[in-house]
Design a protein around this nucleic acid. Structure first.
Length: 317
RNA sequence: CCGGAGAUGGUGGAGUGGUCAAUCACACCAGACUGUAAAUCUGGCGGCUUAGCCUACGCAAGUUCGAAUCUUGCUCUCCGGA
């Protein structure tokens, strides 16, 4: 059976570094699984630009970093929202390419939803967003959205968990789905990668406090790499502040900074906190997946351990 | 040294006699999440033997049935004047 390696974990744990090493030794190619690295020109803030002095060659649809192909960088326009559905299509395409060339595909990323969608498939992918409906629902209060969904389907509302039943965005999507259900073919096939591939999931993490320290250091190094210049350039090229805020984390606070709402000290302080929180959310998501084999990146023998673990899996059957 | 303002929970900052363990925001902790996912949302957040009790709004002493809220003294901080 074809093998598929997945390297995942919260931000700032060195997933790509590990992937590059493994790709070299096992003749692999990397598929990024990151909801923000897909956007063209968001290089420093999304961590596409390696911090070490590695060679980088940008090509259409992929980068070559240190002689290793990394797919799914720069495939979207940062001004336009890209979503899971597109990711799954794009990633499937690339996955087939790599597989048919006989190489080892290595999925690297921290976007849990994208990864899950790719590996397990999603049943609702056939139903795209409905801009007209969304605009109509956009400014309704929570209670109205809840009522609308109940009217459409009492069952659908009941299926939402407590947190989601108060989440406008989820309610909107659920309404959207239920409006469309009568008109779609429910027998669409869901491709499930986990059945086609022999998958190894490797998780990289460490203790919260240590992780936070790494995040802080990384932010400082991104600032040195020219993070602010990058944002300024993007803004000049027409990326609105509003859109930057939607992109989250560095770009959200960069927008505040460019607008003069916060100074550099506040920028760093607030952003660091937000990235810490983000890392925590990533862990919350990944913790549920019991197939992940976790490694502590601060363990003295970390490198040796993961690399051996991966090699053993690769060489076995 | 004189005049003025103020000291509230990890932080900012409400509250000016009872319904205050104290609005709210941030931070923090935990969680959810199948088309915005770096997004969005939920719960918790003084302590405990947790339908109750204890300790708390700078410190101390008072007034009152009752004080974070009123009075007096002390300590400290900030602003203005010497």
């Amino acid at each position: 059976m074809q093998k598929l390696l997945v390297i995942l974990g919260p931000t700032a744990t060195g997933k790509t570094d590990l992937a590059l090493k493994v790709a070299k030794s096992l003749n692999g190619e990397i598929i990024a699984c990151d909801s923000r690295q897909v956007y063209k020109d968001l290089d420093i803030g999304t961590g596409k630009m390696p911090s070490k002095n590695l060679t980088v060659e940008k090509q259409k649809g992929f980068w070559i970093v240190d002689d290793v192909k990394i797919w799914l960088y720069d495939i979207a326009d940062s001004k336009i929202r890209y979503t899971v559905s597109e990711y799954i299509n794009n990633a499937n395409y690339v996955l087939n390419q790599i597989t048919s060339s006989g190489k080892l595909p290595i999925i690297v990323g921290g976007t849990g939803l994208y990864l899950k969608g790719l590996l397990e498939g999603f049943s609702n992918l056939g139903i795209p967003e409905n801009p007209v409906l969304r605009e109509e629902l956009e400014n309704l209060p929570l209670e109205d959205l809840q009522q609308k969904l109940k009217n459409l389907s009492e069952e659908a509302f009941a299926k939402l968990n407590y947190a989601d039943s108060k989440n406008k965005r989820r309610l909107t999507r659920s309404i959207e789905l239920n409006v469309m259900y009568p008109y779609i073919n429910k027998n669409q096939k869901i491709e499930v990668k986990s059945k086609k591939f022999k998958i190894l999931k490797v998780g990289l993490t460490t203790f919260r406090q240590e992780l936070n320290k790494l995040i802080d250091l990384r932010l400082d190094s991104r600032l040195n790499q020219g993070l602010i210049d990058e944002a300024q350039r993007l803004h000049q090229q027409g990326l609105s502040l509003k859109r930057m805020r939607d992109l989250g984390l560095e770009y959200r606070y960069l927008a505040d900074y460019l607008e003069g709402k916060i100074n550099i000290e506040l920028f760093k302080e607030q952003l660091k906190n937000k990235i810490h929180q983000y890392a925590k959310r990533q862990m919350t998501w990944f913790k549920r997946d019991k197939d992940i084999k976790w490694f502590d990146i601060l363990d003295k023998n970390y490198s040796r351990k993961v690399e051996k673990y991966i090699r053993d899996w690769y060489n076995l059957s």
